[in-house]
Design a protein around this nucleic acid. Structure first.
Lengths: 344, 344
DNA sequence: TTGAAAGCGTTACCAA
DNA sequence: TTGGTAACGCTTTCAA
């Protein structure tokens, strides 16, 4: 690699001057500027990001910690982060935490020692206590408010309400909920949304709520149990899309059909939902937007334009597709009935 | 951040001694060692990766360039790379090239100026010419041989043969191929595999080959056209799984069923294939293994244990599921008939 | 067994 | 408008 010294020698100036040319600050005579530029081209010189970082304590790098990149929700998020980061001159280091606190902590340590400028953390297991020693800008995804860090999320509660009401509107008379893990924030909120709608209905029964771990396989098992233990279920609100697909498979294995016998709606709006047959209705989160906003926020905090932390809540949107279309024949449309709740 | 100097002061020794303790090299008296360790703990000191890098020209970072992280093939790959990298003390910078040469080149430049130690490149548009100025270890995914770089890939040709023969075995009498983009290496190879099996059959016709861009939407259109222009197609080999799902949707929209009317097989073995109904038969690539091997290879090259480049070809495996199961009722099994071709 | 100091490639301050 | 140089945090060589 060619260094600034070699450029200086070639151009017949000092390294200080070359530095000024590179950063376009300080006074440089026009002719000197050109001479230096020429030398830079000639030698195909690129400043060492390492050396620059050592000086100014900035690496132009942000860390993104995800529970699992193979969960289809996250690639879209990662893409948004990467794109926004890049277009602001940052690069992204990706870490898979596998959702365990131990890994998260370890990775945060590692990111700190690599001097990333900030961290975006999508964590299921976040507990404020555990992150006391993190003194970098950090924005949280899908977590509740926290005085120290900005957070980006959707109104999960309202999404739960929306999904449940939609099933009701479609004529469902007994609606079950396949909830995510009990200790996961988003899952709790979605469940509460569901409960708020159905708890006073005369058919409601606690046994209509089952739990699974947000994964497909687990959801299949849970759905089968749900169907065995309850008679007359004709609608299921699954806590995420992956589990909704599990529902579909379980229902299929019972020889029942969707949406005729049982309507199914998911949550997240991953692209998978319109790949399957029947296409899956869902409560869509603006995933890309969320990643974009998280990145913008972290960059603001890094660059010091914004030190106070912000709480940003996005709206969810009901996407009706075949899996809940009980009013006409399936296969017709893919309408996004936006039901903004007006916040933001 | 606490520096080595502060540790030295606290322990009452010089920075050189602290450095020796950290790196466990050179002579250090037992008692001194302990004293220093103690100070390190006390201050919660972590060496600055930046400063270390400036010295030894190694960043312990590798760059992974992918065409599109939202394509389900790549997250699994990325996960493998990240895990193997981490367990060797490396971190991974992820870049989305969107498949364009311009972005790839730009990102390689950027990665070089960040002094990554090596690059894993999954490229559709790789042309040796364009990468002449890359003087880092680089391993290529899914590309043909190249004297300068190691490459990791599967036997795409053989996979094409395997898929086509499988459809034949299932009793298909007129098999179409939905191929990937003409200029993409993997797509060409798979197509050739198909052709080698069917070109001498009396029913074969060039019109049985259609092209799409490896994406779902495009595949739906192409399949519809295929079905409109050809009579009697009862088997389709799609160039990748995403397109196979497109086939399924197109066939469904014609009111036909899979596998009874038309059997469908994909290529890749992404996890999507067992999420959909009917579950999709496919030619599975050992994606995780490939990522793992790519990472091991790049690390070897970085650490200088291996300077010569290697060409590693993995075997593909036929996974038969419902979408080609014409011999018995669907829904029974998920068998992996391994047909090794003995290379590697 | 330990410490002093040079050097890694920049930036920024101070002088000239 | 330019150049010399300290400083960033660490490793490594050389001396002690």
């Amino acid at each position: 690699m060619v260094t600034i010294k070699e450029v200086a020698k070639k151009a017949g100036v000092s390294v200080a001057t070359v530095s000024r040319v590179i950063n376009k600050n300080g006074y440089v005579k026009e002719s000197t500027f050109e001479k230096v530029q020429h030398a830079i081209q000639e030698l195909n010189y690129r400043p060492s990001a390492i050396a620059v970082s050592l000086n100014n304590k900035k690496t132009k790098t942000i860390g993104l910690i995800l529970p699992d990149i193979t969960n289809p929700f996250f690639p879209e998020l990662a893409k948004a982060v990467e794109e926004v980061a890049n277009s602001n001159g940052y690069t992204m280091i990706l870490c898979n935490s596998s959702g365990t606190l131990k890994n998260e902590i370890e990775q945060i340590e590692m990111l700190q020692s690599k001097y990333v400028d900030g961290i975006i953390l999508a964590s299921d297991s976040y507990v404020e206590e555990d992150y006391k020693h993190v003194n970098l800008p950090m924005v949280l995804l899908d977590r509740g408010a926290n005085p120290r860090n900005s957070s980006i999320r959707v109104n999960n509660y309202y999404g739960g309400v929306l999904a449940t009401e939609h099933l009701l509107e479609q004529g469902c008379t007994k609606i079950a909920h396949l909830a995510g893990p009990k200790d996961v924030f988003t899952a709790q909120q979605r469940l509460e949304g569901y409960q708020s709608v159905v708890e006073d209905m005369e058919w409601f029964d606690k046994k209509l709520v089952a739990y699974a771990n947000y994964q497909l396989e687990d959801a299949i098992t849970a759905t089968k149990e749900l169907l065995n233990q309850n008679i007359g279920i004709d609608g299921i609100f699954a806590g995420n899309d992956l589990m909704a697909i599990g529902c579909l498979k379980a229902i299929h294995s019972f020889g029942l059909s969707v949406p005729e016998d049982i309507a199914v709606i998911g949550f997240d709006g991953i692209s998978l939902t319109n790949m399957i047959i029947p296409e899956l209705s869902t409560i869509k989160q603006p995933i890309y937007e969320m990643g974009k906003e998280a990145t913008n926020q972290i960059i603001k905090e890094i660059e010091g334009n914004e030190t106070e932390s912000r709480d940003i809540e996005f709206d969810v949107t009901l996407i009706q597709r075949e899996s809940t279309n009980r009013k006409r024949r399936p296969g017709c449309e893919d309408g996004a009935k936006s039901k903004d709740n007006g916040n933001r």
